[in-house]
Write a protein that binds this DNA or RNA. Sequence first.
DNA 1: TGTACTGTCTCACTTACTTCA
DNA 2: CCTGAAGTAAGTGAGACAGTA
Length: 264
Amino acid sequence: MAQEEVHDAGLALGLSLGGGGGGGGDRSNSSRPARWEAPSLTLSMPDDTTVTATASGGGCGGHSVSSLSVGVKRERLEEAADLGEMVSSTAAAGAEDDDDGSTRKKLRLTKEQSALLEDRFKEHSTLNPKQKVALAKQLNLRPRQVEVWFQNRRARTKLKQTEVDCEFLKRCCETLTEENRRLQRELQELRALKFAPPPPPPTNSSNSGPPSSSPAPPFYMQLPATTLTICPSCERATAAGKVDPDRPKATHHFFNPFTHSAAC
DNA sequence: TGTACTGTCTCACTTACTTCA
DNA sequence: CCTGAAGTAAGTGAGACAGTA
């Protein structure tokens, strides 16, 4: 097909116009390809021919200015650009240039192109200029298109990852909420226990054994109520609860690993 | 050496087009 | 056929960085 020449023509345009225009080799200024020459644009073709488009107005040189005006330039030059760009679209492969320059034709990459791009993306999520040009050549696309594809692909990857992270955080939140509920219930039970009338004195000394040995009731239920204090780091959350003022906090701090783990 | 300028690259956001249910 | 949603190529503006005068 004659598509390749058209692609390459488009390539030069991409180099000269893209905000990230890309592709121009290394970052040095030594080998800059096609450039904007106000008020007319010269597109360098690979075969040393040029396409010149006249743009009325414009005439800005700097990058910062170009950010603002490139869009306008683009619009004005799209007709010239369409010379190459539009025909490269598979959708428009057989079509003539659109009479209305304002409509944006859209390329659909072939399965083979997408597959190769995916493969390369798996290897590296970014491309250096050389790789970009080589890949573009291989795919019969413009470097700008390869660049855009990688850009969009990175964005999609990031979006997916964000969704995954979001799901994970949601589950964490649910887990913590559930644990919080459980701990609130536990706290209520403990408070109820603390303010309940004191039980009769034990008649059997065996009750004072190590609390953790018996599965029911829970071991902390067997601790004297006065030892059940609030973890300092939790104090804020349970400020309504009254800490026994008679006891020094630090010495008899009741540490429940469960409450301390997540709730803190 | 410090500074302004410029070009390039990448990202986030948006637009426009295509495909499909 | 029409329509809305989803997917995606491409446009746009801004920030970061490097090279240069």
